[in-house]
Design a binder for these strands. Sequence first.
DNA 1: TATGAATGAGTATTCATTCAT
DNA 2: TATGAATGAATACTCATTCAT
Lengths: 205, 205, 205, 205
Amino acid sequence: MTIKGKRVKIAEEKRKMILTSAREVFSENGLEGTSLRAVAAHAGYTPGALYFHFDSKEALYAEVLNLSLQRLEERIKSEIETLTSHEERLYASGLAFFTFYEENPIDLDLGFYLFRGGMKPAGLGRERDIALNQALEDALSPIAEEAEKLGATETEANLLVVDCFAHATGLLLLLHTGRIRMFNASASVRMKEYVSEKIEQIKNK
Amino acid sequence: MTIKGKRVKIAEEKRKMILTSAREVFSENGLEGTSLRAVAAHAGYTPGALYFHFDSKEALYAEVLNLSLQRLEERIKSEIETLTSHEERLYASGLAFFTFYEENPIDLDLGFYLFRGGMKPAGLGRERDIALNQALEDALSPIAEEAEKLGATETEANLLVVDCFAHATGLLLLLHTGRIRMFNASASVRMKEYVSEKIEQIKNK
Amino acid sequence: MTIKGKRVKIAEEKRKMILTSAREVFSENGLEGTSLRAVAAHAGYTPGALYFHFDSKEALYAEVLNLSLQRLEERIKSEIETLTSHEERLYASGLAFFTFYEENPIDLDLGFYLFRGGMKPAGLGRERDIALNQALEDALSPIAEEAEKLGATETEANLLVVDCFAHATGLLLLLHTGRIRMFNASASVRMKEYVSEKIEQIKNK
Amino acid sequence: MTIKGKRVKIAEEKRKMILTSAREVFSENGLEGTSLRAVAAHAGYTPGALYFHFDSKEALYAEVLNLSLQRLEERIKSEIETLTSHEERLYASGLAFFTFYEENPIDLDLGFYLFRGGMKPAGLGRERDIALNQALEDALSPIAEEAEKLGATETEANLLVVDCFAHATGLLLLLHTGRIRMFNASASVRMKEYVSEKIEQIKNK
DNA sequence: TATGAATGAGTATTCATTCAT
DNA sequence: TATGAATGAATACTCATTCAT
């Protein structure tokens, strides 16, 4: 590897280290409650140093969010690819979104910020929004595909996606805020039952 | 009316005006993202002037939230009280939470802020959390009551509450962020179908 | 008494009440640490109300100080007037300044503020200074008078005043700040010994 | 000298410059009466800039006081160390405290602030108080040592310390406030006479 | 690349004072 | 007289960003 190549690689690793630090600090203090100084300190840098790696606080935020969405996509793909029966694949894809965020509360936090129309002043608005929509579509489309293969119409398949997405999101919110404890219920059990029921409906149509 | 009475009335109206202003500003920027200056300016005051009406920024925020929850409770009660058949009452109570927030997006914004991260950093305190839980319980308990009257076991009724709550929350999020448009679907239709299906399940048990 | 006279008398009593409150609050929080609001609250008033009785915060301060000096003068006079022997009178007048402030730590606090050239920006500077000097002279002059009657020259008498004044002031400072405890000594005993010694010196000259 | 060394040196000089500015401003207005803005402006800085050099206003104040006490100690030590006869040493140590503050009115101002009210509201804390007591003890203890060597009992020596300390403090107050002029007397002459008399007393015992 | 120092705008809150009622 | 509401300036402190070194 050339010297230049080495430098580039080192630079990339530093970026990643900073991004990882940022993820942790964000998850502890919330996006709005986190200062660049805090991220820098956690990463072992002075605030000014971060500006060699990221253009601004907002740009850093954006990159952290991007990484989170990438991880979501990868996770969902790997979840389905080993399965062969359509029913199994539908079940898996219906659960994958929920499961990823259940297991990665930091990303859930980041996701909620994204959802809330936050980051308005960032000025990266539209781009980011399109990327998010794409990521979501990629993450959720397997549900529709498999549902159609099990006999659902296109419309039915599409609504199944919405319903699963909404139910997962709602349960994650309940889980994340501890509100689910009020009801002595398990979020993941609720989600699994929901998806199972939906599959039964399609099969028994 | 006495002069003193007039004064008190004027004072109350000013308080309300400030609260209304605060509602809007808070709902746009959240607790941490909103400065007292912003609220004051929006209400036509100097920052210091607000301290004659509220002890602190947090106290103001708390009052805004309280009012929002009160409105939720009142709305839900009034929705059910005129109905007589258990099925109608179950249907109405299953929808009421969703409908209130669908029609009052500002309150939805406030609600989401409350949920986020369990308000850890805000320090609005245990009291507030208990009040919120109570308000939610009051708002949702009619679902369980009516379900049992239609033949559901206590456990089933309880899970119905969780499921409705989660589904409503998820759909509201999709609606609020415009994400539901991606799927060409109507949040309220999805919610109504969900509640209807659930009622059918109970009846056909 | 006329109606007008009654009104005036009531007004005067209210003034006194406020001044008394101010004294207490000052002594608890220090002059600089005390706000008009605090004085008002302690006196059962709103801040604005005080402006009917005093022109400004500084004017209120000034009056509190005046009262304190008046009390000092009265106390010193009453201390000496019953005594007949010159030696007794010299002893009493040498101690009176110290004793008053030992027994009235609030006034000591006020006094120190006065000394420290504080209140500079008040704009009542010169007047106040002259009044203070007069009060001090009145308070201390008996020492010189009696010393001369016991045989001291005018110069010796004058220096005796300075020395007693300085020693008293220093001991009061040590007493007030608790520093005297470091030495396991009693301020009043030190003062009494000092004055006694000085009297002996004069007599044995 | 290395580049880093240069930087450190520059930084230290800036700190000193700020401390010097702070010394002056604090001595004029006291801790509570002085704003960070005022110190910053006097030092040619923005308020925020001071936070790179000191953690808080109180920390800055504490450092200013520390420096003042250090100077007192050093001065007193150097005053005595060249003398050999016990009488000379006693005389010098009895005067040193007074002389230092007579020559350094700014430090006197700082000292008086420290004394006032025992710093109750300032909250500079126990540590600071202990340090102050230690500095005073170090500054005054030579008086006792030398007195004992001249034949005084431990008790007598201890009381001599209190008496000298009090007399010096009182004279400094009179000097500092200009009150001494009222009596046409010289503070330093009064102090010297006082110490001389005390030494005579011990020798003639 | 990275730092340390600096800025300028921002934060919530307090204060002396004013004034309509 | 007295109040309650209001102002405008002040308070200590924080933050994102910049830049010489």
